[in-house]
């Protein structure tokens, strides 16, 4: 079943730079997709449009049945609640503990405390950080911080997890640990789209790979065909 559909999507920034031109793409539920390409090929713009940080100039973007391009700024939260996003720089609250950082994503929706506790413990277990719930971000390694960010992104049970170079700041061994966590999450049914520069990871994971170039799809490798 289709989760994401892009039809003739074009994005030109106010500066006149065209980042995406005539992009067509379809991603099914439960897929794990890598998006790769050289710097400036439009990877970041593409995923920013998926979670409606940017609006397409033309074309249609449908995510989980919502026409993302047509969402007004005040309604953006509707799509954000269906999507988890993980960044290269983790974006954690430095003055909050691991537990608080993850719980934060549930608290704003008025979920009861015991339910929050159960969910937070469950996801922290999934990312292997249950023993660090009282630590602050500064007390954790990069890999651990990224796992907290992943836990926060998936605690709401999103249909889609978008990862913008999640391993960009990590060493190869830690990167693979993160990939293992992501694969776990994918197995549980969450669709994952990951932007990366690391060809090693892409080759190792054996997933669908979309190569972008100058804002267009240059190649779309089926699962297991990228070498």
């Amino acid at each position: 079943m289709e989760l994401i559909r892009l039809v003739n999507v074009k994005k030109t920034y106010k500066t006149g730079v065209t980042a995406i031109q005539g992009l067509n793409l379809s991603i099914n539920k439960g897929e794990f997709v890598f998006i790769i390409g050289s710097t400036g090929c439009g990877k970041s713009t593409l995923i920013k449009m998926l979670y409606r940080e940017e609006k397409p100039t033309a074309g249609q973007i449908i995510v989980g049945g919502i026409d993302v391009g047509k969402l007004r700024n005040g309604k953006v939260y509707k799509i954000r609640r269906k999507i988890g996003v993980v960044f290269q720089d983790y974006k954690l609250l430095p003055k909050s503990t691991v537990y608080e950082n993850v719980a934060f994503a549930l608290e704003i929706f008025g979920i009861p405390k015991d339910e929050i506790h159960a969910k937070v413990i469950k996801v922290l277990e999934l990312v292997g950080l249950k023993h660090k719930i009282k630590s602050y971000p500064a007390q954790l390694s990069g890999g651990e911080q990224q796992r907290v960010a992943i836990a926060r992104a998936i605690v709401n049970g999103p249909k889609l997890l978008i990862c913008d170079e999640p391993t960009g700041n990590l060493d190869p061994k830690t990167s693979m640990e993160i990939m293992t966590v992501l694969e776990e999450i994918n197995k549980l049914g969450t669709t994952i789209i990951m932007v990366t520069h690391s060809i090693d990871i892409v080759k190792e994971m054996n997933k669908r790979v979309i190569v972008l170039d100058s804002g267009r799809v240059l190649k779309d490798y089926e699962k297991g065909t990228y070498r």
Binding site: R80, K82, V85, K91, I108, A153, N156
Partner: peptide, 13 residues
């Protein structure tokens, strides 16, 4: 930062 994260995880205005 806090506001940015809140927006990101789907907090309404």
């Amino acid at each position: 930062r806090e506001i940015g994260i809140m927006r990101l995880i789907g907090a309404s205005n």
